[in-house]
């Protein structure tokens, strides 16, 4: 699974790798430190907002790419 993004683990400062698309769909991601046992997920209260922004961003990105290729 291609994890393209990372944030520091709030507990051990190791790296938590995550895939934004899966992240905004509610999936939980674990810290890369095997001794940490920390996982993060987006709170259900913010899930819709994050999902909307992510989808808008992806849509706009595709539109820009298509426009540039058609020119």
């Amino acid at each position: 699974m291609p994890y393209q993004q990372q944030i520091p683990c709030p507990h051990c400062q190791s790296v938590i790798l995550f895939d934004a698309k899966l992240f905004v769909s509610g999936m939980r991601f674990r810290c890369s430190n095997p001794d940490c046992n920390t996982s993060i997920s987006i709170s259900p209260t913010s899930l819709n907002q994050a999902k909307d922004v992510f989808e808008n961003y992806e849509s706009q990105k595709q539109t820009i790419l298509q426009k540039s290729h058609s020119n």
């Binding site: 709030p10 996982s39 987006i42 961003y57």
Partner: peptide, 30 residues
């Protein structure tokens, strides 16, 4: 892209023109 980021990831500009990022709630489980 800049316009999109400012409009979707930041609050509307304050009176002094500064913008605050929109925060989302995260849950950490251990």
């Amino acid at each position: 892209q800049t316009e999109f980021l400012l409009n979707t990831c930041f609050q509307p500009p304050a009176q002094d023109g500064t913008r605050s990022p929109i925060m989302i709630d995260m849950i950490i489980e251990r």
